[in-house]
């Protein structure tokens, strides 16, 4: 599972252009919900930076529900704070990395991320956690006891396991179970092993434009 956590203050400061006043920008989407880039965290970071002697032009966080990775939101919030941004020399962004391209499209100011992503694979007790759902249109997990091999298997195998599992552990990451083993056990218990016989076609990776 990917998580976003705050970058240590001293690391943020080390990345700032010398003498540049800072504008702290948050996000009303995941960052507010997960408490790493809502109004509270933006205000706190602004105060901490000021306490370290960094000049702060202002801070802003879109209202809850408005995500900065949406370029319309980014444009609106920055134009609402045009005066402060006139004084600022850098934006410190408290939002997931996906928001960076949106902000970069609507300002020429340099961006410094105030957060970092970390990747972990298990929760306590070695249970599997949902890593990433690829939002496939033909969800394979429905035919695999709710377990998605495309997300969990390091080789993204869709038609059955490789031959490398050892005692039910993944050959690539031995600290986690082979998802195909879990799928097999669950479907066998339900009398549904036949579901695995279906040939799964290659996925589409076609890129489309939202515009």
């Amino acid at each position: 599972m990917r998580r976003v956590v705050p970058t240590p203050l001293e690391v943020i400061i080390s990345r700032l252009p010398a003498g540049a006043p800072v504008f702290v920008l948050g996000c009303g989407g995941c960052a507010t919900r997960e408490r790493f880039g809502g109004a509270k965290q933006c205000r706190e970071l602004a105060e901490q930076l000021a306490a370290e002697g960094v000049e702060v032009a202002d801070w802003a966080a879109p209202e809850p529900g408005a995500a900065t990775c949406d370029v319309q939101v980014a444009r609106r919030v920055l134009s609402d704070h045009a005066d402060a941004l006139e004084r600022a020399g850098v934006i410190v962004l408290l939002a997931c990395p996906q928001a960076e391209p949106a902000v970069a499209q609507v300002t020429d100011l340099p961006l410094v991320s105030g957060v970092q992503t970390i990747t972990g694979t298990t929760t306590g007790g070695g249970a599997m956690t949902v890593e990433e759902c690829d939002l496939c249109d033909d969800c394979i997990a429905r035919a695999a006891g709710g377990l998605c091999p495309h997300s969990f298997c390091p080789k993204q195998l869709m038609n059955g396991p490789c031959g490398g599992a050892q005692s039910g552990r993944c050959e690539v990451f031995p600290d986690r179970p082979c998802v195909w083993e879990l799928i097999y056990r669950r479907l066998k218990a339900d009398g549904n092993l036949k579901l695995l016989e279906r040939y799964r076609q290659p996925m589409s990776f076609r890129v489309t434009s939202d515009e």
């Binding site: 038609n159 059955g160 396991p161 490398g164 050892q166 039910g168 195909w180 097999y184 695995l196 040939y199």
Partner: peptide, 14 residues
């Protein structure tokens, strides 16, 4: 000689 030969045969059939 994989752990789970059942799954191996299922995939082999495919």
């Amino acid at each position: 000689e994989a752990d789970n030969v059942e799954l191996q045969i299922l995939k082999l059939r495919k």
